[in-house]
Design a protein around this nucleic acid. Structure first.
Lengths: 354, 354
DNA sequence: GATTAGCACTCTACCCAAATGAGTGCTAAC
DNA sequence: GTTAGCACTCATTTGGGTAGAGTGCTAATC
């Protein structure tokens, strides 16, 4: 409380917040009488009405129709969220039950990151009753860690490339020429000594030329191997996105009419549409990686009737991903922000310990 | 036409079919007057009414309410579909426009099967206006083809297992003991000679014991490697399922009320629920791999208001997957069955040529 | 015996009017 | 500056009334 606004005095702020809180709970337009009782201001409904008229003029609340109560505008929500965030800034996010539950779950041995994330999205959706999305971590600084060439069968060469983060990628090459175990061993050593520790940018023409020169008659094979390596360390442009709880939108009447539902669920199905969201939130990273998009602020047009909260997590240095929660504008921002804060923090810790 | 039924004479059959066809087109209950004009039987509506009463008693059609026309029951659809299938049996499925389009698309070089299937599902959904699902191919007869152990860095052993169908799987092992390049080479040879060509069932205790014996002091490592191999050749129990066009259900009023839509889309999100469907259709494979489930016949309870048509495709010997199309009971069975028939056929051909 | 015309009956869908009630804006009094 | 009071607005609900589609049944016809 007590954060000054440029145009709002203390009382107006208090009323605005009361309106928003009430609306978050009920989902129904809130009238002056309700506020008059709801707050500790001890003001009559008439006074509240006057203040509300002001608030409306300033654009913080709107009336769905003439004789209805008020609901918050995007601007109103924005103020509320910013204010709320400032208040909570210094608070240490206390342990919450859901996160506890989630931690327990995470500790079970899960081999594959994908599976983990998929299940995390599901759990998050179940706990929050909103729709969720989690992107697989993006390995931005991919460097070659280890290369292994082996002859699988006649004419087939298996190339295994391990990159930072112990990601393993394979390619099977068709090779014309036969070669001895000897030369294969030499090629292996050659590739490893020349390429290990290098990123995509660092493998320039000079390196390639030198490598090919050293390879002598096997320059062709080296060429193919280099392609495979390049493929391996190139950042996947179509990143994996795991989603869950899309059907949760049916819990909120303001989102569940035919048209809106179709749009939203469509956006969840066409995952490419979500990439904007991911990019945006990776770029604008501040506030501990948490971003709140309200209504038309969202980078994804199809979600203009929703609010979206995104958080960035980081498994290891440079290995980042995004978690997003999509719900109605009247979502419980505090809970969502807190959950995301603790979740990303825990995710970081837990994963490093495994 | 002209397929005798146990309880229906020629005329009743004709009327039933007329009712169903009409309903497929309009989606509205069809009345006696409509049929009286629609058919070439030249019967008055009154006569039709009598026949309809019979058909209803026999369970082929139902009335949504007393004074409405009739709509087909599941039993009615069943008869229609079976009959239709018999008629088309000998017909060579002519080239259809959509499949042509699809073929063109498939020919573009697509590296990853996953991506191909994902896009195929999408294309299929767009062309049919139903919801679609495609499972990644299941490699049922997994046999070890090649094993490669290599020391990645100190204490880390990279195990690469290639199985039938050139599927490559990797595991990174932590190993205590150091070993020379020599022993590593020997272990490699040992594993390959002992295990290549074997399937999960064939790697029994005898093989394992013999292998461990030969490994001598490295029996522990062999144990870990065996685990990795077992992991690799075990059929993925959670198979990948690609879906698309879930929002198409909103095109059909009878499926798009809140409750039904939520269920259906939920089923599409929780892909595990779809595995029943896949199993069932892989088991009951007849009729060129095409199965039609009408309403409550479906193995997935949540789809009891829909019809589901599944087809099995086979990329290589023993490498099978399932394609499913989910739509309203009044889906265009003929078109769907034909599309699936040609698609699976083409898929087979095209893939083998690449 | 099968077919048909005719009629009473049943239900849904739609429209319209009135009643309800939540909530406002404004004015006048405190 | 605050409040009580009142007239007004508008979405929502309610109920009745009608139109229309379609049936089932009966009696007449072929």
């Amino acid at each position: 409380m007590g954060v000054k606004s440029l145009e709002l005095d203390e009382r107006k702020l208090k009323i605005l917040k009361a309106i928003i809180r009430n609306y978050l709970e009920t989902g129904e337009p809130v009238g002056s009488r309700t506020i008059s009782k709801y707050t500790d201001l001890n003001l009559s409904s008439a006074t509240i009405r006057n203040e509300m008229a002001d608030l409306e003029e300033l654009g913080y609340i709107v009336q769905p129709h003439t004789s209805a109560g008020r609901i918050p505008s995007d601007k109103g929500y924005r103020l509320y969220v910013d204010d709320m965030m400032k208040e909570k800034e210094q608070e240490v996010s206390g342990k919450e039950k859901e996160v506890e539950e989630m931690k327990e779950f995470l500790i079970e041995r899960v081999d594959k990151v994908e599976l983990l994330l998929q299940q995390m999205a599901k759990l998050l959706a179940e706990n929050t009753n909103y729709a969720t999305m989690i992107t697989a971590p993006q390995y931005n600084k991919n460097k070659v860690k280890f290369i292994q060439l082996s002859r699988m069968e006649a004419g087939k060469l298996l190339v295994v490339v391990v990159i930072d983060g112990n990601i393993v990628k394979n390619t099977i090459l068709d090779v014309e020429e036969e070669m001895t175990d000897e030369t294969l061993l030499q090629l292996n050593m050659l590739c490893n000594t020349s390429l290990n520790g290098l990123s995509l940018n660092e493998i320039n023409l000079g390196v390639i030329a030198k490598l090919k020169e050293q390879a002598g008659i096997h320059r062709e094979i080296v060429g193919s191997v280099l392609d495979a390596v390049a493929d391996a360390i190139t950042v996947d442009d179509d990143l994996e996105i795991y989603t869950s709880g899309a059907t949760n939108i049916f819990r909120y009447p303001e989102l569940s009419d035919q048209e809106k539902a179709k749009n939203l669920i469509g956006a969840f199905e066409e995952k490419e549409l979500l990439t904007n969201l991911v990019q945006e939130s990776l770029d604008k990273e501040d506030r501990q990686g948490i971003q709140v998009y309200i209504g038309s602020e969202t980078p994804v047009q199809m979600m203009k009737d929703c609010s979206v909260v995104t958080a960035t997590y980081e498994l290891e240095e440079g290995v980042k991903g995004t978690i997003g929660i999509i719900g109605p504008k009247r979502m419980d921002y505090e809970k969502v922000v807190n959950t995301l804060k603790t979740l990303t923090a825990q995710l970081d810790n837990i994963y490093k310990k495994t």
